[in-house]
Simulated assay, not measured.
Amino acid sequence: MKELSKYLISVNATFVNGEIVPEIPYEEIMRLVNEPKIVIVKSGIPEHLLKNVIESTWSWSQRVPASEVPDTFDNNQHKRRLHIARIQQAPQLFHDHTFDAIKDLEGSFKETLLTVFDPLRTFWNNLTGNKEEYGIRKGQPYFHPQVTHYPLGGSFFGRHWHPLNPQKVGTILALNKYGRDYHSGGTGYIINDTVIETEGFQDVGDIILFRYDLPHWVSPSSFADRFNWNDPAGRWVAILPFYDPWGQPAEHDEPQGWKQHINASNELNTVAV
């Protein structure tokens, strides 16, 4: 484990029989996440598996028409998002591939995705103490596997936040390499009124973990490049949200309670002393 900055921690891990095994206990990782700190886990997932996810997702998106209707959260779709998000009320410009019905995908593509998403699911389960499987469960939380492409030339995701539960910890897996495959754009956070940028810190195969109610965003890719929806160049990440899309959305006011929670804990400790 290494402290990269006041709020940024790096943790090594090994990839053993399809499972991400960190150098410190899962409970310790969650303690760091809840302090809160941003934890970057070097997953050890082989780069060729990550590259296969990018290439197969891009190929799939070229065969399947992009969705232009409101999300139903019960299918496999991709969408060129260029709007103000209805739930988060944040501006967006990126290409989103969402696999709510991942088990219904064609065999080879499904297996390619699961070589990465199954380890990510198991890792999240180990962190949170759950035993969740894939599958749509209306009226209950379930997984929404996503592969997100931030094209060169100005793609981004504006500042937003989520309810803490039931996700607890957000996961962002880098599918390609900063400085080689893209040169700008990364995820930023606010902790104790301090801006934490992870651009340049997250390498290919690294998983960013963060307390899910922290305000965060994706910084724009450089406008020095020309934007093109039909070019796969740019930043690619895999994320694994777990939520009920018809449940309670995030509160309007940020930050989601983590700061009040910390203040309340500090006041309680002061009284106890």
Results as ranks from 00 to 15, higher is better:
M1S: 11
L4F: 03
S5R: 04
Y7W: 10
I9H: 05
V11T: 11
A13E: 03
V16M: 10
N17I: 04
E19A: 14
E19I: 04
V21E: 11
V21H: 13
P22W: 00
E23S: 15
R31Y: 09
K37E: 04
V41A: 02
H48D: 07
L50M: 09
K51Y: 05
N52H: 11
E55H: 05
S59V: 07
S61G: 06
S61V: 13
S61Y: 00
V64M: 09
P65C: 08
A66W: 12
A66N: 07
A66P: 02
S67Y: 02
S67P: 02
P70A: 08
P70E: 12
N76E: 11
K79S: 11
K79M: 15
R80V: 06
R81Y: 05
R81M: 14
H83F: 10
H83D: 13
I87P: 03
Q88K: 15
Q89A: 05
A90Q: 00
A90N: 02
P91V: 10
Q92D: 04
L93W: 13
D96S: 09
H97S: 07
H97I: 12
H97A: 04
T98C: 14
F99W: 01
F99A: 09
D100F: 06
A101S: 12
K103T: 01
D104E: 15
L105R: 06
S108Y: 12
S108A: 07
F109C: 05
K110D: 06
T112S: 08
L114T: 07
T115S: 13
V116F: 04
F117W: 01
T122P: 00
F123Y: 13
E132V: 10
E133T: 13
Y134S: 03
G139I: 04
Q140M: 09
Y142T: 01
Y142F: 12
F143W: 13
V147N: 03
H149N: 11
P151Q: 01
P151T: 00
P151H: 07
F156Q: 06
G158Q: 00
R159C: 05
H160R: 05
W161R: 10
H162N: 08
L164M: 13
N165F: 08
P166R: 00
G170A: 04
G170K: 05
T171M: 15
T171D: 05
I172P: 03
A174H: 11
L175A: 01
Y178D: 11
S184A: 06
S184H: 09
G186F: 04
Y189M: 03
I191Y: 02
N192C: 09
D193Q: 08
T194E: 14
T194P: 08
I196R: 08
I196Y: 06
E197G: 03
E197H: 13
G200M: 00
Q202N: 05
I208G: 02
L209T: 00
R211K: 03
D213P: 10
P215E: 12
V218A: 14
V218F: 14
P220D: 01
P220T: 12
S221L: 10
S222Q: 02
A224T: 06
N228K: 13
D231P: 01
R235A: 06
R235G: 12
W236H: 02
V237D: 09
D244T: 00
P245R: 00
W246E: 14
Q248I: 07
Q248G: 01
P249C: 02
E251Y: 08
H252L: 15
D253R: 14
E254C: 06
P255M: 03
P255I: 14
W258F: 09
I262L: 15
A264S: 08
A264R: 12
S265A: 15
T270P: 01
V271P: 03
